[in-house]
Computed example of a mutant assay.
Amino acid sequence: MARSTIQDVARLAGVSEATVSRALRGLSNVAPATRERVEAAAAELRFTLSKSASSLASGKTHRILLLVSGGLNNWFNSSVLQGAIEILSPEGYDIVPSFVTNRAELSRLIETLPSNRDVDAIIVTSFTLDAAFRAALASLDMPLVGINNPDIDGLNASVRIDDLEGMRQAVQLLHSLGHERLAYIGNLIPPDLDYSTDLRGEGFHKTALELGYDEGNLYISPPEEANQFRPTPEIARRNVAALLAAPQRPTGVCVQTDEMAAHILNELRRQHVRVPEQMSLIGFDDNQLAQIQDMTTIHQDPVMLGREASRLVLDLLRGKPLDEPHIIVPTTPVLRGTTGVPTDRN
């Protein structure tokens, strides 16, 4: 059976091809009765207006660029993508996912934006937009929405958690349980991009000092450039070795992400450290690893963040004023089996 064309729909509906195009693109200059007749004819013939044709007519691509840091298959990025698809796909938008892992890759992407404008808006996650990125987008009439960015400079709208507050919740929990010596272990983050997760270490140190801990009772894992080339389990082993070798061993440990915390927990158990009796452990994110490991953590919901960012994108594309362009979503401590009163301090 031959594929139906716009001419077939026009003949069946008794209108011009231009009217079919306007009706199926949802333009307002079509009478309701005519639109219904065109839609019924299109449904009968199983005809859909191609996105390329619609884009040429409207000047819109119906594509949204989702720019993430790190692999598309990691928990946070894939969850954001899921949330974005749930909102944007029913509205007729395709999502173009892309990722960068360092500043050089980001610079190459920036160079292509002005000459290759094949998206209507950009959602960018987790890292700071530097001056070059903001300048490249300034000449483009294109909404830019952020998710969990360290700052909002250059963003038309954003949705994010408060990383400082989330880590404050973790430190306060350990303090309330009676832990006198605390530690913080960060993740491997490429050194040439500024990430929102970097704020968690700052939140740990600031809160601990406010609660009366002195520097002698705090251990913060030093960043090592060589960690760029080490697998996460090895980084975890090195950090646990440093914890256990400390003159004053910490009894409460905050970790930047659940991914790293899961490896820390495995290594502590391998070294026969009883968790939480000898050492309590708190992750951050509440991903599947935390749930499987019964690990106390700080909860965030990246699927919901993806949904909210996509709703902001749609409002901006439709010219709708935003009541609250920059949204902060609270984090929540999730108590599980890796925290408790330090009953065995030896």
Rank of each mutant, 00 (worst) to 15 (best):
S4Q: 01
S4A: 15
G14F: 02
E17V: 12
A18I: 08
V20Q: 05
R22F: 10
A23E: 14
L24N: 09
L27Y: 13
A33P: 10
T34S: 10
R37G: 06
R46T: 13
R46C: 07
R46W: 04
T48G: 09
L56T: 07
S58R: 11
F76Y: 12
N77G: 03
N77W: 05
S78T: 14
S79W: 06
V80N: 06
L81I: 11
A84T: 00
A84S: 14
E86I: 10
E105V: 04
L106F: 02
S107W: 00
R108M: 04
I110G: 09
S115P: 03
R117D: 02
I123T: 08
V124M: 13
D130Y: 00
A135D: 07
A136Y: 04
L137D: 01
A138R: 06
L140A: 14
D141I: 02
M142P: 06
V145G: 03
N148G: 09
N148V: 00
P150R: 13
G154R: 06
D163E: 13
L164C: 08
L164S: 12
L164T: 15
Q172M: 15
L174T: 14
L182R: 03
G186L: 04
L188N: 14
I189M: 07
P190H: 05
D194S: 05
D194T: 01
D198R: 13
L199W: 05
E202P: 01
H205S: 15
T207S: 09
G216V: 03
G216H: 11
S221I: 05
E225Y: 06
Q228F: 05
F229M: 05
F229G: 02
P231N: 02
E234V: 05
I235T: 13
V240S: 00
V240W: 03
A242R: 14
L243C: 12
Q248M: 09
T251I: 09
Q256M: 12
N266L: 11
L268D: 02
R269A: 07
R269M: 04
V273Q: 07
P276Y: 13
I282Q: 10
I282R: 11
I282G: 11
I292M: 14
I292S: 01
T296M: 11
I298E: 03
I298F: 03
H299D: 06
P302A: 12
P302N: 02
E308P: 01
L312K: 08
V313S: 09
P325F: 01
I328K: 06
P330T: 14
T331P: 11
